[in-house]
Write a protein that binds this DNA or RNA. Structure first.
Lengths: 328, 328
DNA sequence: CGGGTCCATCACAGTTGCTTATAGCAGGTG
DNA sequence: CACCTGCTATAAGCAACTGTGATGGACCCG
């Protein structure tokens, strides 16, 4: 079970061709053939059917393991090298679309003001990629967002011993089209909305709601993608409901009423965050869609930061700044 | 990053000696020396300090990765072989101490009655070992128990793509010494007990309670081990409180009162389980300690079954029987 | 200071794993 | 039906690797 052979195996299975895999990996076709033969004789099983080249059932099992295995291997290497790397002034931040919100963007600005030499790259990616990018060393720090009960951790796919810290929690609102009968309510209960039409989005997968609340939540429209404006437009046009972080939507009530109706202050609305980039105090141009606070169950839009061993220096400083002092 | 070298590295680090590792792995000392040198030159970092032999910081990082990595490698191999194995009549069941409760022991008896040729071995082990034993093929099926909110999954350490199903949930009670002032209550709230003296046990780690309820739960006595009788004796002697599955303790109220006071029927007390081994309807000899139902938060003692790809045959049948029909 | 223990290094040998060359097989085509 | 083409399997040769055994230097201890 040499990782080398494993890599060859997944390449052959992906390309469904020995010769093509040979080309991609820079070997001769003969070498590929021998490697696959070695793997099969090691396990004592055929892993690929030839002509056409397709994984056997046993090969399918192996494929399921091979990906995470090779990822962890890269992660181990990256982590060890990171532990002994000199302080770097380049920092790559892997972030899901809603993770880098106003609060965190502000903290990032603060960190850059304190450390002008720091070059920051933000890599937008999906929720399932963040951990992989950080673990394999393609990003120093990851930010992932999701829906969770307050102070409950998100469940991100594991890919090694990464440090995971919650860095922000924002109130969640139900996004409604402007004329919706519920739009005037001071708050809503998720249980009352199990039969409503819902959008299936990557930001708020219905699977997650069903796990939290029970069956229901029929999918009215399935949106694959991560563009918030598109989702807002779909809501506005009445395609269905979805949950979004409160700062993205204007409240339907006069602002003076809101603080009293909300059960607790938002944990992220702490003092001491004088952002150099404005914190967008009013909602951006949602033009129509409006949000009603979700009262029960208590759910929040949570952002977690993940990173491996950071060398002391700007990267570690930034991590500390992003973390801010949530517990103090 | 050959797994072979990785295995050598962890052995050397564990034994803190090249020569001893050579003996254990069946190589010469020279080979070990060369393997470590190869690993270090591959990563470009010293991983071990010599004389005395100790991991460097980078080596420590690598050690953290190496264990899970090698486990997953074994898991992959075992899983592939399992997928293509002939139906086996030997079945090894890895179970934590409280996992094989009366309900599941009954289901196991039913399965064995239906399949007399089946040879069953039960491997007692800790919560953190179950997944590893199943993944690496040392057990076909695993049973792990823990404290969780109703129908919430336990969080077991990952070690590959295993199927995880909840198979039983039992009510939790607070175990109290007989003369305790709270012993007569119909139910208790965890929030009222944050300042009580608690036992730290493997069955109910206080860390878990703090995660569910918040700070508090001072540890009065730390019990390392998994013997329930010992824990009951400690409770009876007043060393502290703990949470235990209800069937282990006699109720403090007349049995006729209980069904009315409990919010819901126990999910595992389903009809259709005529156990050939008696289901122990009364509590075993708890002799003194008694249990008071835990009302809020709603917590249960949950048992999960985990397994990889099971070949059709007795093993798969048993898995189905253990699973019973929870959803029907 | 001498013996013992431990790791590093060197030289050598067996094995592994690659390349080149060629054989075998299935499918398309005139 | 014969032939060509594109694919994988096999054989032979060669280079690199990975082990063994022997040896050397550093350190500890009596």
């Amino acid at each position: 079970m040499d990782p080398h052979l494993l890599r060859t195996f997944v390449t052959v299975a992906r390309l469904r061709s020995f010769s093509a895999a040979a080309g991609e990996l820079g070997y001769t076709q003969s070498a590929i053939s021998q490697q696959i033969a070695a793997l099969e004789s090691d396990l004592g099983l055929p892993l690929l059917s030839r002509r056409p080249v397709e994984p056997t059932p046993a090969g399918e099992r192996l494929l399921e393991h091979a990906g995470p295995l090779l990822l962890r291997l890269r992660a181990a290497r990256a982590d060890v090298l990171r532990a002994a790397a000199p302080p770097a002034y380049r920092l790559r931040l892997a972030a899901t679309p809603l993770a880098l919100n106003a609060t965190l963007a502000g903290r990032l600005a603060r960190a850059r003001a304190a450390q002008p030499r720091l070059e920051v790259t933000v890599l937008g990616c999906g929720r399932e990629d963040v951990a992989a990018l950080v673990a394999s060393g393609e990003a120093e720090i990851g930010l992932a967002d999701g829906v969770a009960a307050p102070s409950d951790p998100l469940r991100l796919p594991e890919s090694g011993p990464l440090t995971v810290v919650g860095v922000a929690e924002e109130e969640l609102v139900v996004a409604l089209p402007p004329g919706h009968p519920l739009a005037g309510r001071p708050g809503l209960r998720l249980a009352d909305l199990v039969d409503a039409r819902w959008l299936q989005t990557t930001l708020c997968p219905l699977e997650r709601l069903r796990a939290l609340q029970g069956e229901g939540f029929p999918a009215a429209l399935d949106h694959r993608g991560d563009d918030v404006q598109t989702v807002l437009n779909l809501v506005r046009a009445g395609h269905g409901l979805t949950l979004l972080p409160a700062p993205l939507l204007p409240a339907t009530l006069p602002a003076t009423l809101l603080p009293a109706t909300l059960p607790t202050a938002l944990p992220t609305a702490l003092p001491g965050a004088p952002l150099s980039a404005g914190p967008l105090p009013a909602a951006p141009g949602a033009s129509g869609a409006c949000g009603v606070p979700l009262l029960t169950p208590r759910l929040v839009h949570r952002v977690e930061m993940l990173h491996g061993a950071l060398p002391p220096g700007p990267a570690a400083d930034l991590a500390r700044t992003l973390e801010a002092r949530e517990q103090a």
